[in-house]
Design a protein around this nucleic acid. Structure first.
Length: 806
RNA sequence: GCGGGCGUGGCGGAAUUGGCAAACGCGCUGGGUUUAGGUCCCAGUGGGGCGGAAGUCCCUUACAGGUUCAAGUCCUGUCGCCCGCACCA
């Protein structure tokens, strides 16, 4: 018998698909609801693919084939997130240019993807570093600028001293740079932001439009946005005749405020202490605090200094000493708090250290003496020592106090968010230039549309110096002001690469458009994305940014949908040596050698079979050999049944094959359960192997070949051809014949007191009382009845009978 | 601390709606074909009791309770693990 030669077969079919343009899906302009947009997060070409990424794209590939064969026109594009620090740092470290590095890697990755046999429409390939792409990133930036969504401001920002650039809040994890782990510093710099806090409520509320996103992703986004409802309250500094607002979620504890704290960055500090004996000490504290990193501020014991000033509590006119302490963050609320040590752990810690008074004003209803700080806020507590509000349940007391403040113009209900605006400028080379010119006379002037793109110049020295390396490109940076013609300078900062990836899935729809980023009608035909697949590491960053981007574009009338990704799931990552496999950790396993030694089909099956799609798994190579075994077995049976007469759906094998169709279809369509789908096909193949000459064997093998095609397309095509058929990729997905699912008999499980005592093969149409009679007749059952009285009988149709004896 | 999730053989895992726990695969054991190995084929493989054997009975889904005719699945508590956020007022 002819040997299974995967290398020859896989090359043959990869060529055939390419020549037939099997997986290209041109725009037709006549959307009819059969379109299906399948998207996987695009790779970063800082190296080549590893098996962790193979997992992602193989899962998407199965869905692509499956949806195609169920009659959908599937858009399945591919591209590269090719701007960014990895390539730039590699260029600095190893020499060479970032462009050359990513372009070489793109070539290699593309070859790897073709060798895996993935069904990709290569006509739509995009790469974010190409002028043809970032032209439109720049154009969109200008549209955001025009709409007031992009703006420039000076603010304390997070700075990574190693990468020598500012970072977005989303890129700071526990006070450290998300990329390199360096402790970030605070710097006050003028930077570009996207105003995405204005969409905070939409980003929360419109989660309802998402059909099936993992709960944990939604939870992470909710958490990140961090909406809190509370009140803004004005405290008066009488000597200086000014009001300082605070945000609090605990207005019910207002009578318990015993001091007042400002963040060291608060703009009123200088004014408060000017000419006072405390001035020197306070300004010194502010300076020392500024020198601390976020991590130091958080890890040290709380400290602070008294300013000598007092703020008046509006409800009881008490004068609260104003302190400056860096446990209060300038970036949240108003940068000032009323401190209620009796009911807040942080204020309590601070009060203990500086011997400030602690005044409980909320007590449990049950009269017990609570341990301080007592932070519970519920209907189980009531106000005390709170003037006219004493005795009210805490939530009601809060409403009453806020209403009173409103009536006296000293406060109002307010909402605060943890979310900050998205800082998008970077002081690095390898990114899209921000298309504006700074002019002394006109200020910030957008580069006119017809002068886009602002090309990234080739430079020699990319080394980060605390400002963009483009500052040194004198020829490039000096440019006449587009407005007045006077001397201008280009913006030297480049854009965060998350801007590039916030709209790439729109560009895929209309990838060669040279008049606009995309034609709205074309994007609206394909989008929103029906199924998005990617890693959990982007749960907050990329996915939140892209959601924001689409909302802005929708408000600008450029797309007609509010959410970019209807369905999402996160493939689990692959661990290697106890850590997540990634290029940065250097623990990657390349697919190339595995494909050469086994086959692309075996690797595909193995990576799908290794565990549930969304579970983290350990990389282990053992099972790969098992998959080769399965493929050889399928090959042998395929060639064997090919000598038999044409397939007839008959006998037990046809029944089993039909059940397998139902199982695999459900696993692909609804459950994303690739592992159990493969197991089901294995079962079917094992059944045929028991007796390859049994009735229906050929039907069973042909069904198995057809069902395994999305997962192992090469061997499936080859066997399909040898079984006398045409192109399997054009073949409709098998449909279960209901008649073949019918069985004449079934196995009745008989329980006594819930324990299985016998199994009987009985006719499928037996009525209930007959089932009970058969069950009682069973000698095994009778042995357990012991002649006792049957008190209850439970019948589950076509499954079991349970006899309960007393 | 807050939020999300998980705990099943030697291993990865299956059990989808409360109805036969351990499908499928890896590994391992024994046997066969070929024999240079591998491939390939057959049988076995959660724990324990009784039995020469065919069998048969009991136990088992982190632990302890509960609901139910019936619980890996639902409820309560405990323990352990993973992920995200965290001085956010």
């Amino acid at each position: 018998m002819e040997k299974y030669d995967p290398q020859a077969i896989e090359t043959k079919w990869q060529r055939a698909w390419e020549e037939a343009r099997a997986f290209n899906t041109p725009n037709t302009g006549d959307a009819d609801g059969r379109d299906f947009y399948l998207l996987e997060m695009l790779p970063y070409p800082s190296g080549t693919l590893h098996v962790g990424q193979v997992r992602n794209y193989t899962q998407g590939d199965v869905l692509t084939h499956f949806r195609r064969r169920t009659g959908r026109r599937v858009l399945r594009p591919m591209g590269y997130d090719s701007f960014g620090l990895n390539a730039e740092n590699a260029a600095i470290r190893d020499g060479g240019r970032p462009r050359e590095i990513v372009e070489q890697n793109i070539k290699k990755i593309r070859a790897q993807m073709k060798r895996m046999g993935w069904a990709i429409d290569w006509d739509r390939q995009v790469a974010s570093h190409e002028p043809a792409y970032y032209h439109w990133t720049q154009r969109l930036f200008l549209q955001f600028l025009n709409a007031g969504q992009a703006y420039r401001k000076e603010a304390p920002v997070k700075w990574c001293p190693k990468d020598q650039t500012v970072l977005a809040n989303e890129q700071v994890i526990n006070g450290r740079c998300e990329r390199c782990g360096t402790v970030v510093e605070s710097k006050s710099l003028e930077q570009w932001f996207f105003r995405y806090t204005t969409y905070a409520d939409e980003l929360l509320d419109e989660m309802e439009l998402l059909e099936s996103w993992p709960e944990r992703v939604l939870a992470m986004q909710r958490n990140w946005i961090g909406r809190s409802e509370g009140a803004e309250i004005l405290f008066r500094v009488e000597e200086l005749d000014l009001d300082i607002p605070v945000f609090t979620t605990r207005a019910d504890t207002l009578y318990g405020a015993t001091f007042f704290v400002l963040a060291p960055e608060h703009s009123l500090i200088a004014k408060l202490v000017e000419g006072t004996p405390q001035q020197g000490e306070v300004l010194d504290y502010v300076r020392r605090s500024a020198a601390r990193t976020f991590v130091e501020r958080e890890e040290k014991e709380k400290d602070g200094v008294f300013t000598g000033r007092y703020a008046v509590n509006p409800v009881n006119d008490e004068r609260l000493p104003i302190w400056v302490a860096d446990y209060v963050l300038m970036e949240y609320g108003s940068g000032a708090i009323m401190a209620v040590p009796a009911h807040d752990e942080r204020d309590y810690e601070f009060a203990r250290k500086y011997e400030l008074p602690v005044q409980p004003v909320v007590v449990p209803l049950d009269g017990t003496e609570p341990e301080l700080p007592y932070v519970a806020k519920s209907d189980d507590a009531k106000l005390a020592n709170s003037g006219q509000f004493s005795g009210l349940p805490a939530p009601e007391g809060e409403r009453a106090i806020v209403a009173w403040l409103g009536g006296h113009a000293r406060g109002r209900p307010a909402v605060s968010y943890r979310l900050r605006d998205w800082l998008i400028s970077r002081q690095r080379y390898w990114g899209s230039p921000i298309p504006v010119v700074h002019c002394e006379r006109c200020g910030i002037v957008p580069v006119p549309e017809d002068e886009l793109p602002v090309l990234l110049p080739e430079i020699e020295d990319y080394t980060p110096k605390g400002k963009s390396p483009l500052e040194a490109a004198e020829d490039w940076i000096r440019v006449p002001c587009p407005q007045c013609g006077g001397e201008g300078r280009r913006e030297a900062d480049t854009m965060d690469t998350f801007v590039d990836s916030s709209w790439y899935f729109l560009r895929y729809c209309d990838p060669r458009n040279d008049r606009a980023a995309f034609e709205p009608a074309v994007v609206n035909e394909w989008c929103p994305v029906d199924q998005y697949i990617g890693g959990l590491e982007h749960a907050v960053m990329h996915l939140l940014y892209a959601r924001y981007f689409i909302k802005v574009l929708n408000d600008l009338g450029l797309v007609d949908f509010r959410e970019p990704f209807t369905r999402l799931y996160n493939h689990g990552w692959v661990d290697m040596g106890g850590a997540k496999m990634s290029k940065s950790k250097g623990n990657v396993v390349s697919p190339d050698e595995l494909v050469a030694r086994h086959s692309a089909d075996a690797l595909r099956l193995h990576i799908l079979f290794i565990g549930p799609a969304d579970a983290r798994v350990d990389w282990q190579e053992n099972g790969l050999e098992g998959m080769s075994r399965f493929l050889r077995r399928l090959w042998r049976l395929g060639l064997e049944v090919a000598t038999q007469p044409p397939a007839l759906a008959e006998g037990a094998l046809a029944h089993k094959a039909t059940e397998t169709i139902v199982k695999v279809t459900d696993d692909f369509e609804r459950r994303y359960a690739y592992n159990t789908a493969i197991a089901a096909v294995m079962e079917l193949v094992n059944d045929v192997a028991d007796d390859p000459s049994a009735p229906g064997a050929r039907f069973a093998v042909e069904t198995a070949v057809s069902l395994i095609q999305p997962a192992a397309p090469h061997i499936a095509e080859e066997l399909w051809e040898r079984l006398g058929h045409g192109r399997l990729w054009e073949e409709p997905w098998p449909v279960a014949d209901p008649a073949l699912l019918q069985r004449e008999t079934f196995e009745l499980v008989v329980q006594v007191n819930g324990k299985v005592r016998d199994r009987l093969e009985v006719p499928a149409d037996l009525p209930e009382d007959e089932l009970i009679a058969r069950a009682k007749e069973s000698p095994k059952v009778q042995a357990h009845l012991n002649g006792g009285e049957i008190r209850q009988t439970i019948v589950v149709p076509r499954k079991l009978v349970n006899l309960v004896v007393g």
